[in-house]
Nucleic acid binder design. Sequence first.
DNA 1: GGCGCGGTGTCGGCTAAGCAACAGAGGGGC
DNA 2: GCCCCTCTGTTGCTTAGCCGACACCGCGCC
Lengths: 198, 198
Amino acid sequence: MLVKETTGKAEKRVDPRVRRTRELIVRAFGELVAEKGHTGLTVQEIAERATINRATFYAHFADQYELFDHAISEAFREELRQRLPDPSGLTEENLRALILAACDYLARLNTACSRTDRQFRPIIESRVQGELYELLLRWMEATPEKTIGRQVRPEVTASVVSWSIFGAALDWSRNGAAPSSEEVADHALAAIVGGLRP
Amino acid sequence: MLVKETTGKAEKRVDPRVRRTRELIVRAFGELVAEKGHTGLTVQEIAERATINRATFYAHFADQYELFDHAISEAFREELRQRLPDPSGLTEENLRALILAACDYLARLNTACSRTDRQFRPIIESRVQGELYELLLRWMEATPEKTIGRQVRPEVTASVVSWSIFGAALDWSRNGAAPSSEEVADHALAAIVGGLRP
DNA sequence: GGCGCGGTGTCGGCTAAGCAACAGAGGGGC
DNA sequence: GCCCCTCTGTTGCTTAGCCGACACCGCGCC
């Protein structure tokens, strides 16, 4: 089958078998994690539940951890898809929704993730930040006139903003959600948009 | 791919892709029928919902009606699987459960099947009788000492009994379920087991 | 009548999934 | 130590599924 590395930009025509197989794997992974957690989960189990061959698994993912990354990204993207009103555009409403989504997602991790799976938290969190980065970068490319300034590279802007949102949401979720997430979102939004101007 | 006609007896080793594809087709068919009925349903729709290619459909079923037959048989078999205590054996308990299952299944058809789909009722009903026949024949082969007599061919016995059960259940379901299905089952069972001896 | 349109059923060539077998890496048990 | 066991990745070779195209048919339209 040969690993397909067309990570360039096209990826429009995907073989339906490939799409179906990947969905089966991701779904099976989600079910198994919900049932018994990540610890001790084997590739054999995943392949069996997904009704695919174990060798086929390795044609799609290098190992279990790559699948893990992919599943987390997919789940967070789905969360965003349901919450963002306008799918693309660097507006304050979208930024606010982004912060709220990150807060809720990370807060849910605190309650849903069992103690034994805590080791996976860093992986999940880094994926959330990565998705925020990718999304912000796409937004900025779609609306170039709204970037902070011509002298700042969009990649750097996306990095700063994504880490800001991610960090604020993570701190909030760790501190027991002390102020409301709406309040955090408002303040963080003000800081991000307004910058450090006195 | 070549049509696989191993209807003989083996069919133990089935390619997992084949099993999965058939299940996808049957499930898609069930969903679409539940949503919009049989009328006007196209093979294209079924293939699309099942996430398989249209040509693949024809590798598994000659046409839509063969799928229809298969789906009905499968549904009725599933019904039986949930109701029969001992999976095999020609006992009075099993026969009674068989009658009750047929009654319930046909009664549910009366309410679930919409008016526009009434043309398909005969197909469904004949499939129910066919499944009863197959099951009875298997039971008799499993317990040969319990057949009615050596002079009667098991095929004929299975035919008579299956039509008896089917007919009784159909009449009962058509007559508005006048006596309870349990009562019908008891009487039919007595007639079938006891025969016409005065 | 002719014409387009959409669904059907079929076919050859390409591609992804299945399988069996392999070496290798842990991980107990004793 | 050594053995046994399970899981991991990997590799040819086989097989089922996807695609595009085709002829055919029924049906409405004009």
